[in-house]
Amino acid sequence: MNPLMKFAIVMVIALELTFIKSVTINLIIIGVSAFLYLFLKLSWKQWLWLFILPLLPGFGSWFSLMYFGTGDHVHMAWVMLTRVFAYLWLGGLFTLKLTEERDVFLATLEQKAKLSATFVYALVGVLNFMPAVNQQIKTIRVASQMRGQTLHIWQAQLYFKAILSAIRWSQNLAEGMVSHGFTEGAPRTHLQVVSIAKRDWLILIIILIAFQLLLIPNWY
Protein backbone atom coordinates (compact mmCIF):
# COMPACT_ATOMS: atom_id res chain seq x y z
CA MET A 1 0.00 0.00 0.00
CA ASN A 2 1.20 3.50 -0.75
CA PRO A 3 2.72 4.96 2.45
CA LEU A 4 0.94 8.30 2.03
CA MET A 5 -2.43 6.55 1.91
CA LYS A 6 -1.47 4.57 4.99
CA PHE A 7 -0.45 7.82 6.65
CA ALA A 8 -3.79 9.44 5.81
CA ILE A 9 -5.78 6.58 7.34
CA VAL A 10 -3.64 6.54 10.46
CA MET A 11 -3.87 10.30 10.97
CA VAL A 12 -7.64 10.47 10.52
CA ILE A 13 -8.23 7.64 12.99
CA ALA A 14 -5.73 9.13 15.47
CA LEU A 15 -7.52 12.48 15.32
CA GLU A 16 -10.85 10.79 15.98
CA LEU A 17 -9.41 8.76 18.86
CA THR A 18 -8.57 12.04 20.59
CA PHE A 19 -12.27 12.80 20.93
CA ILE A 20 -13.60 9.26 21.42
CA LYS A 21 -13.93 8.25 25.04
CA SER A 22 -14.18 4.51 24.60
CA VAL A 23 -12.03 1.72 25.97
CA THR A 24 -13.51 -0.78 23.53
CA ILE A 25 -12.70 1.26 20.44
CA ASN A 26 -9.12 1.72 21.67
CA LEU A 27 -8.79 -2.01 22.28
CA ILE A 28 -10.15 -2.77 18.81
CA ILE A 29 -7.55 -0.43 17.29
CA ILE A 30 -4.80 -2.13 19.30
CA GLY A 31 -6.09 -5.57 18.31
CA VAL A 32 -6.33 -4.80 14.61
CA SER A 33 -2.86 -3.20 14.67
CA ALA A 34 -1.44 -6.25 16.46
CA PHE A 35 -3.01 -8.49 13.84
CA LEU A 36 -1.43 -6.43 11.04
CA TYR A 37 1.94 -6.52 12.78
CA LEU A 38 1.90 -10.30 12.43
CA PHE A 39 2.29 -9.79 8.69
CA LEU A 40 4.93 -7.08 9.01
CA LYS A 41 7.47 -9.44 10.59
CA LEU A 42 8.69 -7.19 13.38
CA SER A 43 11.90 -7.87 15.27
CA TRP A 44 11.61 -8.72 18.96
CA LYS A 45 13.07 -5.30 19.77
CA GLN A 46 10.22 -3.61 17.97
CA TRP A 47 7.68 -5.71 19.86
CA LEU A 48 9.36 -4.80 23.13
CA TRP A 49 9.29 -1.14 22.11
CA LEU A 50 5.56 -1.36 21.38
CA PHE A 51 4.82 -2.85 24.79
CA ILE A 52 7.12 -0.81 27.01
CA LEU A 53 7.05 2.68 25.55
CA PRO A 54 3.39 3.54 26.30
CA LEU A 55 3.56 2.20 29.87
CA LEU A 56 4.86 5.37 31.44
CA PRO A 57 2.53 7.99 29.91
CA GLY A 58 -0.33 5.49 30.06
CA PHE A 59 -0.02 4.71 33.74
CA GLY A 60 0.90 8.33 34.47
CA SER A 61 -2.53 9.40 33.26
CA TRP A 62 -4.19 6.35 34.80
CA PHE A 63 -2.93 7.04 38.32
CA SER A 64 -3.64 10.76 38.24
CA LEU A 65 -7.17 10.24 36.91
CA MET A 66 -7.81 7.59 39.55
CA TYR A 67 -6.63 9.92 42.34
CA PHE A 68 -7.69 13.34 41.19
CA GLY A 69 -10.47 12.71 38.71
CA THR A 70 -14.09 13.71 39.06
CA GLY A 71 -17.22 12.42 37.36
CA ASP A 72 -16.66 9.27 35.29
CA HIS A 73 -12.96 9.38 36.07
CA VAL A 74 -12.48 5.62 36.50
CA HIS A 75 -13.74 5.07 32.98
CA MET A 76 -11.61 7.95 31.71
CA ALA A 77 -8.53 6.49 33.41
CA TRP A 78 -8.93 3.27 31.43
CA VAL A 79 -9.65 5.27 28.27
CA MET A 80 -6.37 7.16 28.66
CA LEU A 81 -4.36 4.02 29.38
CA THR A 82 -5.68 2.26 26.28
CA ARG A 83 -5.57 5.44 24.19
CA VAL A 84 -1.81 5.85 24.62
CA PHE A 85 -1.31 2.27 23.44
CA ALA A 86 -3.72 2.79 20.55
CA TYR A 87 -1.85 5.92 19.38
CA LEU A 88 1.50 4.17 19.40
CA TRP A 89 0.37 0.87 17.90
CA LEU A 90 -1.61 2.64 15.22
CA GLY A 91 1.27 4.98 14.45
CA GLY A 92 3.72 2.10 14.37
CA LEU A 93 1.90 0.70 11.35
CA PHE A 94 3.19 3.73 9.51
CA THR A 95 6.47 4.59 11.27
CA LEU A 96 7.96 1.12 11.72
CA LYS A 97 8.05 0.58 7.98
CA LEU A 98 8.97 4.16 7.14
CA THR A 99 12.72 3.62 6.79
CA GLU A 100 12.06 1.29 3.86
CA GLU A 101 9.22 3.33 2.42
CA ARG A 102 10.62 6.82 2.96
CA ASP A 103 11.58 7.50 -0.64
CA VAL A 104 8.18 6.44 -1.95
CA PHE A 105 6.48 8.48 0.78
CA LEU A 106 8.35 11.65 -0.12
CA ALA A 107 7.94 11.05 -3.84
CA THR A 108 4.20 10.65 -3.34
CA LEU A 109 4.09 13.88 -1.34
CA GLU A 110 5.73 15.68 -4.23
CA GLN A 111 4.02 14.05 -7.19
CA LYS A 112 0.56 13.28 -5.87
CA ALA A 113 0.00 15.65 -2.94
CA LYS A 114 1.66 18.45 -4.94
CA LEU A 115 3.83 19.58 -2.06
CA SER A 116 6.40 22.04 -3.40
CA ALA A 117 9.69 20.44 -4.40
CA THR A 118 11.54 22.87 -2.11
CA PHE A 119 9.87 21.35 0.93
CA VAL A 120 10.23 17.76 -0.20
CA TYR A 121 13.92 17.99 -1.05
CA ALA A 122 14.64 20.06 2.05
CA LEU A 123 13.06 17.22 4.01
CA VAL A 124 15.16 14.63 2.22
CA GLY A 125 18.31 16.62 2.88
CA VAL A 126 17.65 17.29 6.53
CA LEU A 127 16.51 13.75 7.32
CA ASN A 128 19.84 12.52 6.02
CA PHE A 129 21.55 14.94 8.38
CA MET A 130 19.87 13.58 11.50
CA PRO A 131 22.80 11.46 12.71
CA ALA A 132 25.09 14.44 12.16
CA VAL A 133 22.79 16.65 14.23
CA ASN A 134 22.97 14.20 17.10
CA GLN A 135 26.77 14.21 16.85
CA GLN A 136 26.90 18.00 16.65
CA ILE A 137 24.94 18.41 19.90
CA LYS A 138 27.40 16.09 21.63
CA THR A 139 30.28 18.10 20.14
CA ILE A 140 28.81 21.38 21.40
CA ARG A 141 28.45 20.03 24.92
CA VAL A 142 31.88 18.40 25.01
CA ALA A 143 33.52 21.51 23.60
CA SER A 144 32.13 23.64 26.39
CA GLN A 145 32.97 21.01 28.99
CA MET A 146 36.58 21.30 27.93
CA ARG A 147 36.40 24.92 29.01
CA GLY A 148 34.94 23.86 32.32
CA GLN A 149 31.35 24.81 31.45
CA THR A 150 28.46 22.42 31.35
CA LEU A 151 25.68 23.49 29.03
CA HIS A 152 22.30 22.70 30.49
CA ILE A 153 18.97 22.49 28.79
CA TRP A 154 17.88 25.77 30.38
CA GLN A 155 20.84 27.78 29.09
CA ALA A 156 20.49 29.99 26.05
CA GLN A 157 24.11 29.27 25.03
CA LEU A 158 23.26 25.67 24.14
CA TYR A 159 20.49 26.69 21.76
CA PHE A 160 22.49 29.59 20.38
CA LYS A 161 25.30 27.26 19.37
CA ALA A 162 22.86 24.77 17.92
CA ILE A 163 21.26 27.55 15.87
CA LEU A 164 24.67 28.67 14.63
CA SER A 165 25.21 25.15 13.31
CA ALA A 166 21.73 25.13 11.82
CA ILE A 167 22.38 28.43 10.01
CA ARG A 168 25.72 27.25 8.66
CA TRP A 169 24.47 23.84 7.59
CA SER A 170 21.33 25.20 5.98
CA GLN A 171 23.41 27.58 3.87
CA ASN A 172 25.87 24.89 2.90
CA LEU A 173 23.15 22.42 2.05
CA ALA A 174 21.24 25.04 0.05
CA GLU A 175 24.38 25.82 -1.95
CA GLY A 176 25.07 22.14 -2.38
CA MET A 177 21.58 21.47 -3.67
CA VAL A 178 21.66 24.38 -6.09
CA SER A 179 25.07 23.37 -7.38
CA HIS A 180 23.71 19.90 -8.03
CA GLY A 181 21.05 21.35 -10.24
CA PHE A 182 18.16 21.99 -7.88
CA THR A 183 16.19 25.00 -9.10
CA GLU A 184 13.49 26.44 -6.89
CA GLY A 185 10.06 26.48 -8.44
CA ALA A 186 11.23 24.90 -11.68
CA PRO A 187 9.15 22.06 -13.12
CA ARG A 188 10.78 18.69 -12.57
CA THR A 189 10.75 15.41 -14.37
CA HIS A 190 10.77 12.20 -12.37
CA LEU A 191 12.75 9.07 -12.89
CA GLN A 192 10.33 7.15 -10.73
CA VAL A 193 6.74 8.07 -11.36
CA VAL A 194 4.56 7.25 -8.40
CA SER A 195 1.07 6.01 -9.01
CA ILE A 196 -1.56 5.30 -6.40
CA ALA A 197 -3.47 2.14 -7.19
CA LYS A 198 -7.28 2.23 -7.26
CA ARG A 199 -7.12 -0.59 -4.74
CA ASP A 200 -5.41 1.77 -2.25
CA TRP A 201 -8.22 4.30 -2.55
CA LEU A 202 -10.74 1.52 -2.09
CA ILE A 203 -8.97 0.27 1.06
CA LEU A 204 -8.80 3.81 2.45
CA ILE A 205 -12.51 4.40 1.89
CA ILE A 206 -13.53 1.00 3.28
CA ILE A 207 -11.40 1.34 6.41
CA LEU A 208 -12.58 4.86 7.17
CA ILE A 209 -16.26 4.02 6.61
CA ALA A 210 -15.92 0.83 8.67
CA PHE A 211 -14.36 2.85 11.46
CA GLN A 212 -17.23 5.37 11.46
CA LEU A 213 -19.76 2.53 11.59
CA LEU A 214 -17.84 1.06 14.51
CA LEU A 215 -18.47 4.27 16.45
CA ILE A 216 -22.26 4.02 16.25
CA PRO A 217 -22.90 1.57 19.14
CA ASN A 218 -22.53 2.96 22.64
CA TRP A 219 -19.30 1.20 23.67
CA TYR A 220 -17.80 1.27 27.15
Binding site: S116, T118, F119, A122, L123, G125, V126, F129, M130, V133, N134, Q136, I137, I153, L158, Y159, A162, I163, S165, A166, I167, W169, S170, Q171, L173, A174, M177, V178, F182, E184, G185
Partner: peptide
Amino acid sequence: KSTRWALRDVLLLAFVAVFIGFIFWVL
Protein backbone atom coordinates in the same frame (compact mmCIF):
# COMPACT_ATOMS: atom_id res chain seq x y z
CA LYS B 1 4.51 28.62 -0.47
CA SER B 2 6.06 28.77 -3.89
CA THR B 3 7.02 32.43 -3.91
CA ARG B 4 8.14 33.41 -0.45
CA TRP B 5 9.60 30.23 0.96
CA ALA B 6 13.20 30.23 -0.16
CA LEU B 7 15.12 26.97 -0.06
CA ARG B 8 17.55 28.39 2.49
CA ASP B 9 14.73 29.40 4.83
CA VAL B 10 13.05 26.03 4.61
CA LEU B 11 16.33 24.29 5.34
CA LEU B 12 17.08 26.59 8.28
CA LEU B 13 13.64 25.95 9.72
CA ALA B 14 14.04 22.22 9.32
CA PHE B 15 17.50 22.20 10.90
CA VAL B 16 16.37 24.27 13.88
CA ALA B 17 13.48 21.86 14.39
CA VAL B 18 15.77 18.83 14.22
CA PHE B 19 18.24 20.38 16.66
CA ILE B 20 15.51 21.22 19.17
CA GLY B 21 14.04 17.74 18.68
CA PHE B 22 17.38 16.14 19.49
CA ILE B 23 18.19 18.38 22.44
CA PHE B 24 14.94 17.31 24.05
CA TRP B 25 15.49 13.75 22.99
CA VAL B 26 18.61 13.84 25.13
CA LEU B 27 16.36 15.05 27.92
